[in-house]
Design a protein around this nucleic acid. Sequence first.
RNA 1: GGGUUGUUAGCUCAGUUGGCUAGAGCGUCUCGUUUACACCGAGAAGGUCGGGGGUUCGAGCCCCUCACAACCCACCA
Length: 878
Amino acid sequence: MKFASSYEPGEYEADIYAAWEASGIFNPKLNTKPIDDNRNGVDDRVETYGAAPKFSIVMPPPNANGNLHIGHGLTVAIEDSLTRYYRLKGLPSWYIPGADHAGFETWVVYERNLEQQGHSRFEYSRDELYARVWDFVAEQRGNMELQLRALGASCAWDDLTFTLDENVVDRVYTTFEKMWNDGMIYRGKKLVNFCPKHQTAFADIEVEHKDEPGSLWDIEYKLVDSKESLIVSTTRPETLFGDTAVAVNPDDKRYQRLVGKKVKLPLTDRTIPIIADEHADPEYGTGVVKITPAHDFDDFEVGSRHNLERIQVISESGKMINVPEKYDGLSTAECRKLVLEDLKNQGLLKDEHKINHSVAHCYKCGTVLEPTLKEQWFVDVEKLASVAISHLEAGEIKFYPESKQKILINYLRGLKDWNISRQIPWGIAIPMFRRVDPEATDEPDWIFDRRTNLSEIEKGGVKYVRDEDTFDTWFSSSHWPIVCTDWTSGNFNPYYPLSVMETAADILFAWVARMIMVGLYVTGEVPFKEVYLHGLVLDEHGQKMSKSKGNVINPMELIVRYGSDAFRLGILRGRSAGMNQAFSENSVISGRNLCNKLWNIARFIQSVVDENDKEAPETYSTDNMGEDWICREINECLDQIDKNMKAYRFSEAVEVLYQTIWDKYADWFLESQKIYKNVNLLKITLESLLIALHPFAPFVTETIWQNLSWTTGFIASAKWPSRLKFDPISAENFENIKAIVTETRTTMQLLSGANKKKSYGLLYDNDSIVQDNKLLIKTLAKVPDVNNLNGSPRGLRLALANHELYLDVPEEIVIKYKEALTERILLIGRELNSLNARLMNPNYVEKAPAHLVKETRDQINEKESLIARLKDQLHYIK
RNA sequence: GGGUUGUUAGCUCAGUUGGCUAGAGCGUCUCGUUUACACCGAGAAGGUCGGGGGUUCGAGCCCCUCACAACCCACCA
């Protein structure tokens, strides 16, 4: 016997995966490289399989710097289920794995490691650092890839794409060059979100805003040549050294007459103008706001409108600069304290209000971000966004959940220019070189060049040095569908656009939006036809998982304990698109149980099928109602799976399989097969269910497949089951048997309180269904015998409308059943009343669909007959 | 300030165009070691679908309103 009494996933999973990988079935059958055997200059693939359906999906590349987390577990469970499903359906299916150099993320991890070893990034050159991180990542990546295998990801490993691969860098440079030539790239000295700790800028999207308590200080700015003064409200008094104006609202009657006059900037000798600008809100504070263009995003805008000077008073490392000597070199916090003290001493600090305001933080280290004036590379997004919007509005991409389409369009409408430069060494170097030769002023300041391996180049006798910045990770990863499918201009690519993009809902803006914009810009086509977004996996109480809360669930631990399939089944259940949903071990346990159930089903069937029977069944017959019935139910299950997979309803697909396998196949069909053994049907139905479950539980289904005597090849590349033939009337009749058996069991349980050990025979009168299925009913209902009544009724009548059946119970026990019977009559009576009320309503009869009205009538008849029989029974007890 | 989503059994969630007595998993209770499975089998209890109003023959589902919760965006000095 190859089947132990329970399924132990750990014994099989690694070997199964290795066998799959060695077999090459994860590589799609279609070639992505152009072929032109006919030598007619046309890519042969266009004719051969241009129109044939295929399935392509790319893995959102996990960060190559560590372990997979629960979100990756969900991603793989979803993506791999889809891939395996379409592969079984016969579509060439390409699931492309990836790894992300994750610029900033990896950098943070690496820098922390350096610090722990007592080193600093400043001990090394940029190129040295790059090489060191490369090695670090190479080491980590293997780990991550092993974990993807443990999850069962059926991806094409040969095609793994790393975000720093040559073709990726090359493609990114090509796009950048095109943008540069199209005038969409510009270098601007603008305010950027700058992390003083990490010494790098962030895109708006990467900034985390948190509400925090703070203070709003009222500071007096005295007018020049006047006794008057203005009270300015600010949360950042230390930036006053950078003030280049004071603004009031143009409609603010209180201050209109002062516009154009000057105030003296406290603690300095400078005077600054009073300007009128909409930005000043008359309702807020005193209605007067100081303008610091170099250190505040709003003020920057105001400054641009009024041509104000931008005075930088905070350095990139967060120290005060360009300020009176007394404050020079202080941290912002120290300086604030001192400024407030000095203002107070001079009587200029008028008031302090406690407020809550939103403060920008580094999403990695929590440091307060300093809006800093910096030269950065920007992409003008206007055209990119508007093209994307028009394609989105045309409905070229279908979103799951649907609402995300609108949200995305809304986001793109307000999109600001994209800062694509980062000041970290780990990443793709920006291919721009700055002219250093001061003599050659006829040459451009900046030139594009791909030779980023050089830090200095010469062109036309002029020397240029490479910009040290690297690209924002999102700039390169926005090319993901393009680079993974190896899309090249002018070549037919059967896999682009992707069938679906599956990723986390929280990177809709950061990633999905950018892939769409860049995809359209580079290829002219949307990069994917559908987008499925999954929500966050929360802990069992619906709380966000975090290290500090200690509620992080490690998917690998669950796999070790319960198996990969159990994890996949567990994480897919109760989950729907875009929703942040709780997850607990219970659902994994439930998945584990299903695997074990399936294992034992196979064990039982193999015990019926001879171990030496290697014959794959081609046909089968159905010889009794249960057999027709299970064929019908399996067909229904397959229909439901198709429907649900098309709509990305994984939870429902799993649910249907669970119920079909457990509640129908095992509990009814297999039990009935303990009497009638239909070997071919057992083989065929088991195969169908195994294949249908395989997308979700690949390991256990494959393990069983490999252990069954008659199966060959891999289930992973098997053919999706076709619909089973059966007799529908016979199938429907089995419902009768089920009803009889269930009623017998229920009644028996009710009576068993009176006499636990005893069970009673079943008597029937004039009932051919029962007569023909005596043995089946006897076995399923666990009664000692089923006999013809042969005489006047005795015992306890079962509450079944269309059958005359009695439990052969002694009278003294029947009497104890009286109470239960009375209650039952009342209950059915209430149901009958509500049905009658419905029919009494002329509007219902008139307006509801005919079949519903008929259904109601039938139900009334059925209930009435049931009540009559039960009352008979009650009468009989007396 | 704007937006999105949610509120259904003790817990986590389904419930697809409005249609029978609102479902599942886990948990709870009762019974059961029947040779595939105690990671099991049989049965049961448990919900006035967040509150209020409306449309309809009929509302968990549609409309209005209120409450609560979560998330996202945004320049509240």
